[in-house]
């Protein structure tokens, strides 16, 4: 394990998560190479989001550990994990509804700010400058994701679905993350929009040097963009490799389509 920039940026080692008697994630190991876009896929209820929540500190794994740039971040608080450089979006968009788009993105920079209670009240020049810097950066992030500047001061709840997705990504980007975790970002998008998002993720990787972990249950989305795909089903890792390998893995086909259907397809030769 190294922090010198050669090892994987994130490595999850033998993660198990149990809720009461239920095992949501079972012994899953997983690594994200630096500067890569990798995907975690699986049918609904496969444990993807649980795994995601473990990476971001919302859950503590029952067993196993998570390393980020060589540092053990297992059971580190979510806000500290964010401060270390892992930012995320949510499957069901979780913006702060009564804040404006700009304010939402400013909250994303909370960990990068210093103003405390008295600084906030007295507002010395240092705090004013910080506030201005954060505001500018938020506007910049919003423009980067393509939110019209006329909408920056709109309350998040009043934005269209697509715009809310953008704001959520901007909010994550504004914290200058090294690793971006996207939880089903194409949910509710049409094929053209999904395609655009795919291009955007590549842009993020190439322009900002981000590593990206993508969760999807729609296999088509991930195939075009990810270098590496891991498949979960019933909390277990059933397959991993490049898109092609995974796509033809009978276990994966079965997990997605059910045994019978898989059988039929194999005979028909259609995937």
């Amino acid at each position: 394990m190294s922090a010198d920039g050669t090892g994987p940026i994130l490595a999850a080692e033998a993660i198990t998560k149990q809720f009461g008697g239920l095992t949501a994630v079972n012994d899953v190991s997983f690594a994200i190479p630096r500067g890569a876009i990798v995907s975690l896929i699986g049918p609904n209820g496969a444990g993807k989001t649980t795994f995601f929540n473990i990476l971001t500190g919302l859950y503590k794994p029952t067993l196993g550990r998570v390393r980020f740039e060589g540092k053990d971040i297992t059971a580190v608080r979510p806000d500290k994990i964010m401060a270390l450089g892992i930012a995320r979006t949510f499957q069901n968009i979780r913006l702060f509804g009564t804040m404006t788009a700009l304010e939402n993105v400013m909250v994303g920079q909370h960990a990068r700010m210093k103003a405390g209670l008295f600084g906030s009240i007295l507002r010395p020049p240092r705090v004013r400058r910080e506030e201005q810097r954060v505001r500018d950066k938020a506007a910049e992030a919003l423009e980067y994701v393509g939110l019209r500047s006329a909408l920056h001061e709109q309350l998040a709840t009043n934005l269209s679905y697509g715009d809310q997705r953008r704001v959520e990504i901007a909010r994550a980007l504004a914290s200058d993350p090294k690793l971006l975790l996207l939880d089903e970002p194409t949910a509710g998008m049409n094929p053209q929009e999904s395609e655009d998002l795919t291009r955007f993720m590549e842009r993020l990787r190439d322009e900002l040097g981000l590593s990206i972990l993508l969760i999807e249950h729609d296999m088509k989305v991930v195939m075009g963009v990810s270098e590496h795909v891991t498949v979960l089903d019933h909390g277990e890792k059933i397959s991993e490799g490049d898109a092609q390998t995974v796509r033809t893995d009978p276990l994966v086909v079965e997990a997605y389509l059910g045994k019978q259907e898989a059988e039929r397809q194999r005979q028909g030769g259609v995937v």
């Binding site: 033998a14 503590k60 794994p61 029952t62 067993l63 196993g64 550990r65 297992t74 059971a75």
Partner: peptide
Amino acid sequence: AARIPAAR
């Protein structure tokens, strides 16, 4: 070790 209880 790979299997370490997270908090014990």
